[in-house]
């Protein structure tokens, strides 16, 4: 049986999203929560990349010896790749901000437990 690689990628993306939400919801350690959120973002990125896949497609670079119609029929879809690049950059910067905040809070409270640091004392 041949496994459809696109379908498997969608499945992986879905699992990453579910694992991410699970980690953010149930794990108490802030670093683990953040790793979960990174999983969530990566799952979505993988989902977008997978959508651009075209079975038997060619790279979307127009080479001199190609005809337009051949290129238009066979090239895979470039837009998702461009979007994912931006999305990864955004993900990295928010990840940095979250980790930075965790460093400050860890110094202040001496703990990484979400229920201790992010409890109801913020009022």
């Amino acid at each position: 049986m041949v496994i459809d690689s696109q379908l498997m990628s969608f499945f992986t993306a879905g699992s990453l999203i579910v694992i991410g939400i699970f980690a953010a919801l149930f794990l108490d350690n802030l670093i683990k929560k953040i790793i979960g959120l990174a999983f969530l973002a990566d799952g979505v990125n993988l989902f977008i990349i997978t959508m651009g896949y075209k079975a038997g497609g060619i790279v979307y670079i127009f080479m001199p010896n190609m005809t337009i119609s051949n290129f238009a029929q066979n090239a895979s879809y470039p837009l998702p790749f461009a979007l994912v690049l931006t999305s990864i950059v955004i993900g990295a910067s928010t990840l940095a901000v979250m980790l930075g905040l965790v460093i400050v809070l860890n110094k202040r409270h001496g703990s990484l437990s979400a229920s201790k640091i992010l409890g109801d004392k913020g009022e």
């Binding site: 953010a24 959120l37 969530l40 955004i90 928010t94 979250m98 905040l101 202040r108 640091i117 004392k121």
Partner: peptide, 16 residues
């Protein structure tokens, strides 16, 4: 800082 982290964490669920 606590509020900021809560807001970022929730934002990182809503954003993706």
């Amino acid at each position: 800082y606590e509020t900021a982290l809560k807001y970022t964490l929730l934002g990182n669920i809503a954003g993706p």
